[in-house]
Design a protein around this nucleic acid. Structure first.
Lengths: 197, 197
DNA sequence: CATAATAGCTAATAGCATTAGTTTTGTCAA
DNA sequence: TTGACAAAACTAATGCTATTAGCTATTATG
């Protein structure tokens, strides 16, 4: 008692990230969070806007950290090398922050402009990474969806234990990147029957 | 009062599926579920083993329904045609049951043998669908992971509103299947530098 | 040093899951 | 037809959660 605990919005967010990465997003509660600071849960309301406000901050922090991580991985590279580095950075982020990653990409919020901007930033990084593939028109945007789908799916299945088979994950991932590269180079070609519809 | 409500395990599970598909998995509660039956929440315990027991049943029901849906889509087809049909069936299931799909594939449980079997059944369906690609050895298993990643990622991003761009989703999906097909046919070839590690 | 802002507190409310124990209802055999 | 039993649904109670209101004490600022 007596001396103040020294809470800040930032310290609470950081503690929450640590908690969800260790115990999963479901076990995030103001009660458990407060106890790690040796504080009563209503005290947290001086710094965050309830549990929903905290979740919102976590989503934003996760989106920004992810897009920053993949941006950093691609600087100075291009083509397959850039794609390869970005994929590994993406996966590394999800493994390092399983709870944060899951919670971030699960978010369904649409209206918030900060979130929209953070999401667009991620798309832009992927778009820049794919520049060397010279994708015409909308093909580049479709390709971004393709890349995001592949990475998101793999990473979620890995982190969530969805891959049951006793088979090397690193190998699967590496092959997937190779296949991804093939698919992207195919999109450079003029057409493929059925590809426009 | 007076006359019995006629609850059964099955009717509760069905109502829960309807509820999570409409309102999302987070809003599943015994209280709201009970109220749709005009019943008090402790009454549900006569049929299900609490909220966790209900969730477990939902996961199992989701896994089975999904694997059944994609199995049905592939009968009588092979090669690209089978892959194409399976992908569409997968996406259709997720769109029809967004809450159930999300909850099912989010599950982290490992120990349960029923779940393991249901998961393996899904893998087997995909494996069978890919038969015509003649993938050698482990390549088939890696390919299953690839296919599942692509579908899981796309479908989750679509259902979760993760695709922000105003761009036709059907087109993106169709192109993705085409790219997937390319990647799988590539794996038939002997090797690609870096592909084995 | 006095005052204002604010961090953290206690108390109280409401909603949730869960358990224990009770009443009611439907069924089945005598 | 009736009596007994099993099961369905109930009430009451407990303990967890988030949240709000209002208080106290600490810190910074004039």
């Amino acid at each position: 008692m007596s001396v103040r605990a020294g809470l800040t919005t930032e310290s609470i967010v950081q503690a929450a990230i640590a908690l969800i990465d260790e115990q999963g997003p479901e076990s995030l509660s103001l009660a458990s969070l407060a106890s790690t600071f040796g504080v009563r849960s209503p005290s947290l309301y001086n710094h965050i806007n309830g549990l929903d406000g905290l979740r919102h901050r976590l989503v934003l922090a996760g989106l920004r950290a992810l897009s920053e991580a993949i941006r950093a991985s691609a600087v100075g590279r291009s083509g397959f090398e850039a794609l390869h580095a970005m994929c590994h950075a993406y996966r590394a982020f999800a493994r390092q922050h399983p709870g944060l990653y899951t919670m971030t990409l699960r978010s369904q919020e649409q209206g918030d402009p900060e979130l929209q901007q953070a999401g667009r930033a991620t798309v832009d990084v992927v778009l820049a990474t794919l520049q060397a593939y010279n994708l015409p028109g909308d093909a580049a945007l479709h390709a971004v969806r393709y890349v995001r789908s592949v990475l998101h799916g793999f990473v979620l299945l890995e982190v969530g234990g969805g891959f049951g088979l006793p088979l090397e994950l690193d190998t699967s991932f590496e092959r997937m990147i190779t296949a991804l590269d093939y698919g992207l180079r195919m999109s450079q070609q003029p057409a493929h029957e059925g590809a426009t519809q």
